[in-house]
Simulated assay, not measured.
Amino acid sequence: MAILKVLKYPHPILRKKSKEVKDFDTNLHQLLDDMYETMIAKNGIGLAAIQVGIDKRILLVNPPAQDDIQHKDELIEIINPVFLKKEGNIKWNEGCLSVPEFYEEVDRFEEITLAYQDRFGEKKILQASQLLAVVIQHETDHLNGILFVDKLPILKRKKFEKELKKNQKETG
């Protein structure tokens, strides 16, 4: 397994729309394993393939359990996700591995129903709410070239752009 490079905003690949996965083979399994190692190494709770430069409709979610630990047996590998239902509204303070050290409240659906495939191509349905629903929405946005900062009101977006420019100058 390998730790992959996570692309940072404003990398242009992050704006690319991901393609459907058709081959559920050992290459896919290796990518999923590498993405998991990368997500854990970077202290993430979700990761989309596009964030590591792969434009495939693949994402991982592994929010911490009640004991505040991410258990690998609770990892969900989601391939070719399609929302079947979105209900309610919730505000959630989000961050992103591709937008490090910036957190802001985002409006999301509180409950979702999702159709997807697992690593073997088997079709599944998942119902999620609260944090799990938010993480899935956040990562699915990545597959469509959308970052959480795109969902911010204009004043908060300007604040983000200003902080980004300041950080880029400092790390120059």
Rank of each mutant, 00 (worst) to 15 (best):
M1N: 12
A2H: 06
A2I: 15
I3C: 06
L4S: 01
K5L: 00
V6L: 03
L7F: 03
L7I: 08
Y9C: 06
H11S: 08
L14T: 08
K16N: 12
K16S: 12
S18N: 10
E20R: 05
E20K: 09
K22N: 04
K22E: 01
D23I: 15
F24V: 14
D25H: 07
H29I: 14
M35A: 09
M35V: 13
T38W: 00
T38D: 02
M39R: 05
A41D: 10
A41E: 12
G44A: 03
G44R: 05
G44E: 02
G44N: 04
I45A: 05
G46H: 07
A48C: 05
I50Q: 04
Q51W: 07
V52L: 05
V52T: 13
V52F: 13
G53A: 14
G53I: 10
I54T: 10
I54Q: 03
D55Y: 08
D55S: 12
D55F: 01
K56F: 03
L59N: 05
L59T: 07
L60D: 15
L60C: 15
N62C: 05
N62S: 07
P63G: 06
P64V: 14
P64Q: 15
P64M: 14
A65F: 00
Q66D: 13
Q70N: 13
Q70G: 13
H71E: 09
H71R: 14
D73Q: 14
E74A: 14
L75K: 11
I78V: 09
I79C: 01
P81M: 07
V82Y: 01
V82C: 08
L84Q: 03
K85G: 08
K86M: 12
E87C: 03
E87L: 03
G88S: 11
N89G: 06
I90Q: 09
I90T: 11
W92F: 09
E94S: 13
E94W: 04
E94A: 05
P100S: 11
E101R: 15
E101F: 15
F102R: 06
Y103S: 04
Y103G: 02
E104I: 13
F109K: 04
E111C: 09
E111N: 10
I112V: 09
I112N: 04
I112T: 00
L114T: 03
Q117W: 01
D118Q: 01
D118A: 06
D118V: 12
D118M: 04
R119F: 06
R119H: 13
F120C: 00
E122I: 13
K123A: 08
K124W: 05
K124G: 09
I125A: 02
L126D: 10
A128C: 05
Q130N: 15
A133T: 00
A133P: 03
A133W: 02
V134S: 04
I136T: 10
I136M: 14
I136P: 10
Q137N: 11
Q137C: 04
H138D: 04
T140L: 01
T140A: 15
T140R: 02
H142Q: 06
H142F: 06
I146A: 02
L147I: 09
F148E: 08
F148I: 10
D150S: 05
D150K: 08
K151F: 02
K151V: 08
I154C: 04
I154T: 07
K156F: 02
R157D: 00
R157I: 07
R157P: 00
F160L: 05
F160I: 04
K162N: 07
K162C: 04
E163F: 06
K166P: 11
N167P: 03
K169N: 12
K169A: 13
